[in-house]
Design a protein around this nucleic acid. Structure first.
Lengths: 112, 112
DNA sequence: CTAATTTGCAACCAAAAGGTTTCGTTTTAT
DNA sequence: ATAAAACGAAACCTTTTGGTTGCAAATTAG
């Protein structure tokens, strides 16, 4: 059972759950009520998010509140950022290349 | 068939492929030779990466070179960064925030 | 020309993912 | 005290995922 942050945020429903509880802690029912899948399905998603540390659960009477603990997203952030300069540099190169082409094409009157 | 960047980078093998070809374009065999799975398995991973725009293929004779096009990683970057302030500034506000929340949540209904 | 190299792709398979229904337990409300 | 609410978890099902072997097509080497 692979359980890392990359796999956790791969599912759109789980990203939606994160978006919801990032602003405020919510109970299981409060979260489940916002989706058109069953409570159990949400429970499973939350379990995955819990197991990889993105969520903690706080019990209060018969209710359980989900709280976001998004520190672990730095793993994703770090991984992506190591490529930022790469794609930025490539983009700059592409841009100047295209600018050059536009200039050339203007001279020759070639317009697509 | 879902094919988005989040799902594409969820697999560790695919992240490894990205790491390899980020530095230099490589042929199918060159990439496949670095893993202990079959060439076809790598081909499938590359296909997924291609379909979501993280890789382009450049044919050259009977060989095909994979090139990284990592601009789309900004989608991941943007998503993560919107939560950075959350996980950075979380702890100061946490106590009072939660105390206030507990009372409110009892009255809250569905969010749909 | 013929043989080897490089690759795409179909067919198939096991396991994981995402979903459901159902039931038990604990806490709250009447 | 009893009913309802909130939730965890087991059992089950279907689709997706990640892998395999095998074969055909195209290009290059000898």
């Amino acid at each position: 059972m692979r359980r890392d942050v990359f796999q956790a945020i791969a599912d759109p429903t789980r990203r939606a759950i994160i978006a919801m509880i990032a602003h405020q802690s919510l109970s299981v029912n409060a979260v489940a009520g916002s989706f058109d899948v069953s409570r159990t399905a949400i429970y499973k998603h939350v379990k995955i998010l819990t197991e990889c540390g993105l969520i903690v659960v706080r019990q209060q009477g018969r209710e359980r509140f989900y709280e976001a603990r998004l520190e672990k997203l730095h793993e994703v952030s770090d991984w992506v950022e190591q490529y930022r300069t790469f794609w930025a540099a490539r983009f700059d190169a592409l841009e100047s290349y295209l600018n050059g082409m536009q200039a050339k094409n203007k001279k020759k009157g070639k317009l697509k």
